[in-house]
Design a binder for these strands. Structure first.
Lengths: 242, 242
DNA sequence: GACAATTGCTTGCATCGTACGCAGTGAGCA
DNA sequence: TGCTCACTGCGTACGATGCAAGCAATTGTC
C-alpha cells in the first residue's frame, strides 16, 4: 500500500523540498533555470527540438547532468508546462458581471498563454494537472464557471469542454505546417473524386477553404470568438434549462 | 512553380496509380496490407509501438523494405489514418429529421471510430484531410451541418468545433494512464495548497473528482452526450439568431 | 542470352532517452 | 589538520529510432 509518489521536481514546484544536501559541491543549475531554458528552446524551435542534450547544451552542461535535477524527460516536460502556464492573470472582474464574462476572460487568458507557447497543447500528460500553475488555472476556471449555479459535477464537466475548446483551437492553428496549409486545396483538387465527396468538391469549387490566415486582425480572432460563443451559448442553455 | 505533390501512397489510396512496373520481382507486400498490420499494431500496443521495424517484423520483412511502398513514416501514418477512419457509416436519416439529428449521428459515428482506434487523435498531421476516407468524413460532416442553413463558411467553422469536441473527448479518455488517473486525487491532496487554490481544494474535500470511470454504462457515455449537447445547443443558438 | 528495371536486404549514421560508474568537491567530524 | 562521504557533473555504453546509399537476386523485354 505504497503512497502514490509525486516526482521530486514537481514537489519542488510546490515549495516542498526534501532535506537539503549539506555536503558536496553546490549545484550549478536549478530546476527553474532548466525550465526557463527549455521553455525558450521550445518556443523558438518547437517541442521536437527539446531533448535532454539540446537543453543541457544551452546551459553549458551535458545531457546526463540534467538527471541530477529531473527524474526523466517526462518530468522535465511537467516542469516546462508549469513554467509556461505561469500564474493565472485575469482582469479584475467588474462587479455585476456574470459568469459568462468571467468564463470569457478565463478562456481568453488561456488562449493568450497557449499562443505564447503553442507546444503547450502538444505535451502529453499521464495524469490531470498536478503542478501549482496548472492547478491554478483549473481553480480559476472552476471559480468562473461556478457562477453558473450548476452543480459541482457539471461545473467540472463544463470546464473540461471549455478547456478542450481552447486547446482544439490552438491545435488547429499550429498543427498544420505553413506549407501544408497553403498548398492543401491545390493538392486536394488534384486527387479528389467528385462523385465520392460532392460536398467537399463543391466547397472547393466555391473556394470556401481558400481563406488565407489573417496575419493582422482583431484579438482574439473571429474564429476563436465564433467557437467560444458556441460553447458558452451551449452552457447557457444548460443553465437556463436546469 | 512546381505543382504541390501528393505522396505516392496517398495517391494510391485515391486509386491513382502511376505506371505499373513491367519488369522486376513482384511486390511481396502492398500498401493496404501494410496499413492493416500497422493499424492492428497501434490498436493493440499503442501508437508508440508503431515503428518501421515493428511493422515490418509483423509482416516478416525488414524495416527498409517498407520504404518501397511508403515514402516516410509520416506517409505510413497518413495511410494508417485513412484505414482507421474507414468509410463513413451513418444510419439512414429518417425523413423529417433535422440537422441536429444528423449532426448527432455524425458525431456518434466519429466517436465510434475514434474509440476503436484511440491513437487516431494522436496522429499529428501537417495538412488538413487529404485521404479519401478522411475527406469522406469531412464531406458527411459538411452535409449534416449544411442542414442548418448557415453559410458555407459558418458550416465549415461549426464542423471544426464539432470535430474538435469529439477529439477532445477521446483524448480526455485516453491521455491519462489508468494509474495516473486513479492515483491523481491522492497525489494532488498530498501537495495542494489550500490558500492558493481553494476552489480545487474544496472540490477535493467534496470528492468531486473521485468518480471512477464507468466500465459499464450507456453508449455514448453521459459525459459525451453532455458535451455534445453543449456544442449542438450553441450551434442552435447561432442558427436561430441568424 | 544480354540488359534493365525493380525487388528486399545489409550496412551505416545521427539522434534519442537513460543506466552505470568514476573523479572531483567540500562540509562535518575526528 | 586530515578523514569521511554525500553529493556534484561527466564519460561511456546500450538499445531504439528514422532513413540514406548501395548490393544482390529476380523478372520481364529485346
Amino acid at each position: 500500500m505504497a503512497e502514490p509518489e509525486v516526482s521530486r521536481a514537481v514537489r519542488a514546484l510546490w515549495g516542498i523540498h526534501d532535506a537539503v544536501p549539506r555536503r558536496g559541491p553546490k549545484p550549478a543549475m536549478s530546476v527553474p533555470a532548466i525550465a526557463r531554458v527549455a521553455v525558450a528552446l521550445a518556443d523558438e524551435e518547437g517541442l521536437d527540438a527539446v531533448s535532454m542534450a539540446s537543453v543541457a547544451k544551452r546551459l553549458g552542461f551535458t545531457a546526463m547532468s540534467l538527471y541530477r535535477y529531473v527524474d526523466t524527460k517526462d518530468d522535465l516536460l511537467q516542469v516546462m508546462l508549469d513554467a509556461a502556464y505561469g500564474p493565472v492573470t485575469l482582469p479584475a472582474p467588474e462587479p455585476g458581471d456574470g459568469w459568462r464574462s468571467a468564463a470569457t476572460a478565463w478562456a481568453r487568458a488561456l488562449l493568450d498563454r497557449c499562443l505564447a507557447h503553442p507546444w503547450l497543447v502538444d505535451v502529453r500528460m499521464s495524469s490531470p494537472p498536478l503542478t501549482p500553475h496548472s492547478v491554478g488555472w483549473m481553480d480559476a476556471g472552476l471559480r468562473a464557471l461556478g457562477g453558473t449555479g450548476l452543480g459541482p459535477q457539471q461545473v467540472a464537466s463544463s470546464l473540461l469542454i471549455l478547456d478542450g475548446y481552447v486547446r482544439s483551437h490552438v491545435r488547429l492553428l499550429h498543427e498544420y505546417s505553413e506549407e501544408g496549409l497553403r498548398t492543401w486545396s491545390t493538392r486536394l483538387r488534384s486527387v479528389i473524386d467528385e462523385e465520392a465527396t460532392p460536398t467537399v468538391w463543391m466547397a472547393l469549387q466555391a473556394d470556401v477553404f481558400d481563406d488565407e490566415p489573417a496575419e493582422e486582425g482583431p484579438w482574439p480572432s473571429d474564429d476563436f470568438v465564433f467557437g467560444l460563443e458556441i460553447v458558452l451559448g451551449g452552457i447557457e442553455q444548460l443553465v437556463e434549462g436546469s
